[in-house]
Computed example of a mutant assay.
Amino acid sequence: MKLNKRPLVLILSFFLITTSTLASTNPSSNTEQKEPFGIILYNQLKIDRAILELEREATDGNTESQYYLGEALRKKNRYMTPEAQHWYESAAEKNNIYAIIQLARAKNDLCAKVGNCPPSKKTPAEWFELANKLVLPKAQNGDPESLYLMYEITLNREWLEKSANAGYPTAQYWMAVSERQGEGFFLIPGKREASVKKWLLLSSEGGYPKAMMDYLQILFEEGDVVGLRHWLETAAATGDQAAISNYGAYIAHTPDKIGYPLDLVKGYALFTLLKELEDSGGIGRYVERKSEEIREKMTSEQIEKSLEVAKDWKATHPPLSFFPDKLGR
C-alpha cells in the first residue's frame, strides 16, 4: 500500500510557518556542497529561474540537473510534456534511477488520462523492469537507499521497513507517517505513538528536516522545552526555511516561546536571508512583517552587525530550501 505523502499535522499555534514538501539532506557547509545551482533554485521553489539554470546544466550533461529539469517541467505544466520526458530519458540513459521510476509512473500521469502522452522509448512496464533490474541487487546487499527505492518501485511496505531498519532517514520518516496513518499492528495502547516518535527521532538524527519538524510537534505536545530548543536549532542548520523562520523569530523573542536567550542580531540576520526566497511558497508577506517587527527593537549598529552575521551563516550553512521530495508526485 502506497502512503499518502502528506506531512504530519503541525499545531499552528506553535509553528509560525508550516513546512512545505521537503527532500532528504544532512547538514553541511556551503563550502562542501557541490549541488548545481539549478537544483538549489528548484528546492527554493523558484521554478522559472530554476528551469533556465537547469537547462544550461542539463545541456552540459549534468545527469542530476537533467532529472530535476524533467521534474520542474512536469510540475510546472502539471503533466508529462515532451520536453520533460526528453530530459527524464536523457537522465535515464545514464541509469539515473529516479528518472527511470518517474518514466515508469507515466501511466498514472495526467497525460495518460487525457490520452496525449508523448511517445516514449520504453513502455512504463519496461521502465519498471529496468528500475527493478538496477536496484534489486543493491537492495539485496542491504543498501539502505536501494531498499527504499524498491519500496517506491513495488509499493510493498516491507521494503520501506527494511530500509528504515537499515538506517535510511527518508524511509524512517515515512515509517512514522505510515504508522500515524494506521499502518502496522499495535495491540498495546501507546505503542503506536511510541513507535512514531522513535522513527521520527531516528530520521531526525539522520539529518532529515521533515522529520525534525514533525518531531518538534511531539516535543511541543510533551512540553519538552529543552528538546524543542535543540531540535529547532538543528533543523534551522539544515537550511529548512520553516525551521529558520521559527528559530529566527524565537531567538528575537517575536515571540519568546521556548526560552532562547535574546539575540536580535542573529534573528534579524536569518530573516534577511529568508528575504532571498522572495515570495516562494507564499512566505514573502510573513517574512517582511516579521523582519519589521524585529527591526523596530534594534539599533542601527545591531542592524549593521546582522548583515555580517547573515553573510557568515550563508557561507557556513546549506542553502535555504523547502526540501521538496526528490521523487515527487
Rank of each mutant, 00 (worst) to 15 (best):
M1A: 14
N4Q: 12
L10R: 10
I11K: 06
F15S: 08
I17Y: 07
S20W: 01
A23H: 11
P27L: 09
P27G: 07
Q33R: 14
E35N: 10
P36M: 05
Q44K: 07
I47D: 03
L54F: 01
A58G: 12
L69T: 04
L69W: 06
N77K: 08
M80I: 04
T81L: 09
Q85H: 02
A92L: 00
K94D: 01
N96Q: 11
K107L: 02
V114K: 13
P119Y: 06
E129I: 09
E129K: 14
L134Y: 04
K138N: 12
A139V: 11
Q140C: 05
M150I: 03
T154P: 01
E158S: 15
E158V: 13
W159V: 10
L160A: 02
L160E: 01
S163R: 05
Y168T: 03
P169Y: 07
Q172R: 09
M175L: 07
E179V: 14
Q181G: 07
E183L: 12
F186L: 08
K191D: 10
A194S: 14
V196D: 09
K197W: 05
W199T: 04
K210A: 15
D214H: 11
L219D: 01
D224I: 06
V226T: 15
V226D: 15
E233Y: 10
A235E: 06
A237Y: 03
T238K: 12
T238F: 09
T238M: 10
A243F: 06
N246S: 12
G248K: 01
A249H: 01
I258R: 02
P261L: 08
V265S: 03
G267D: 11
L274D: 02
L277N: 08
G282F: 00
I283N: 02
G284V: 00
E288N: 14
E293C: 03
K297L: 14
S300H: 10
E301C: 10
I303Q: 13
L307D: 04
V309N: 05
V309S: 00
K311G: 06
W313F: 11
L320G: 05
S321H: 12
D325T: 02
G328I: 09
G328L: 11
